[in-house]
Amino acid sequence: MDLPRSFTIRESSHRLCNPFTSEKLTILRQAISPSPGTRVLDLACGKGELLCTWSRDHGVTGTGVDISTVFIGAARARAVEVGVADRVGFVHADASGYVADDPVGIAACVGATWIGSGVAGTVELLRRSLMPGGMMLIGEPYWRREPQDQATVEGCHMTRKDDLLPLPELLERFGGLGCDVVEMVLADQDSWDRYVAAQWLNIRRWLEANPDDELADEMRAELTAAPVKHARYQREYLGWGVFVLMDR
């Protein structure tokens, strides 16, 4: 049970495995201002940056869950680095079936709603761990501009245009699930650049160090195509944000 190696190669230098900068993560924390001691469950937590920095800066406690052994190892090391290993813990597991033993004040899935087969299933999964009056954090892409052809859809790593919604329709979708949207912090084009462009250097350095690896041809092809694909499609058409929801 693990992520394919290509993921960890691309994101080897990342602390945030989403198109979200540390500054935007701070804005989100300040916007919802969790009380010290608030328990957080972060499903598909990646390298644990949300839990670790929020524990350091706001005193939250909690658990992160991720399927990647590499990411979980990095999360545990980050907790030690920032001095919060006694307040947060990380579990290597499939987040799609994970429910907290005790209700939490914040239940998060930031950028991995496939664990619930989409937004609706992920909201239902988070609700199973959430205390009354708690908050859900959902990180989700949306169409920044409506794609005009299938090449654009596929250039944004989607299969069909209907795989994503424009931002107003996504907000309506949350409402249709019985949630109030009480905050949102959106990525911008610079956020996307910092996330995606850093992957190119990670891949290049990995290729130089591993020219004979079985993944070398695949990663070389990705590096060759990725900058133009990002500039032509992803940068112009893909939005992404973290949406804060509360049950009505």
Rank of each mutant, 00 (worst) to 15 (best):
145 R>L: 13
182 V>E: 11
146 E>D: 06
153 V>W: 00
98 Y>L: 03
79 A>G: 10
112 A>C: 09
82 V>R: 03
157 H>Q: 08
193 D>W: 04
93 A>C: 12
129 S>Y: 02
129 S>K: 05
134 G>M: 06
124 E>V: 11
99 V>A: 15
109 C>L: 02
68 S>H: 04
163 D>C: 15
69 T>A: 12
128 R>F: 08
111 G>F: 00
175 G>S: 13
135 M>E: 14
147 P>M: 05
164 L>N: 04
119 V>Q: 06
101 D>L: 13
104 V>F: 08
101 D>E: 15
76 R>Q: 15
94 D>V: 01
140 E>H: 08
147 P>C: 07
141 P>K: 02
125 L>G: 02
138 I>W: 01
116 G>C: 07
105 G>W: 05
151 A>T: 11
179 C>W: 01
191 S>H: 01
109 C>G: 07
99 V>S: 14
106 I>K: 01
152 T>W: 06
162 D>T: 12
97 G>D: 04
182 V>Y: 07
96 S>K: 00
79 A>K: 01
86 D>R: 09
158 M>W: 03
73 G>V: 10
162 D>K: 12
177 L>P: 02
102 D>N: 11
148 Q>H: 14
200 W>Y: 15
83 G>K: 03
71 F>Q: 14
131 M>H: 06
80 V>H: 09
179 C>D: 06
188 D>T: 04
102 D>G: 09
93 A>G: 09
157 H>L: 11
170 L>K: 03
128 R>M: 03
133 G>N: 07
159 T>G: 11
60 V>N: 02
137 L>Y: 02
92 H>M: 06
93 A>T: 05
66 D>Q: 11
109 C>F: 03
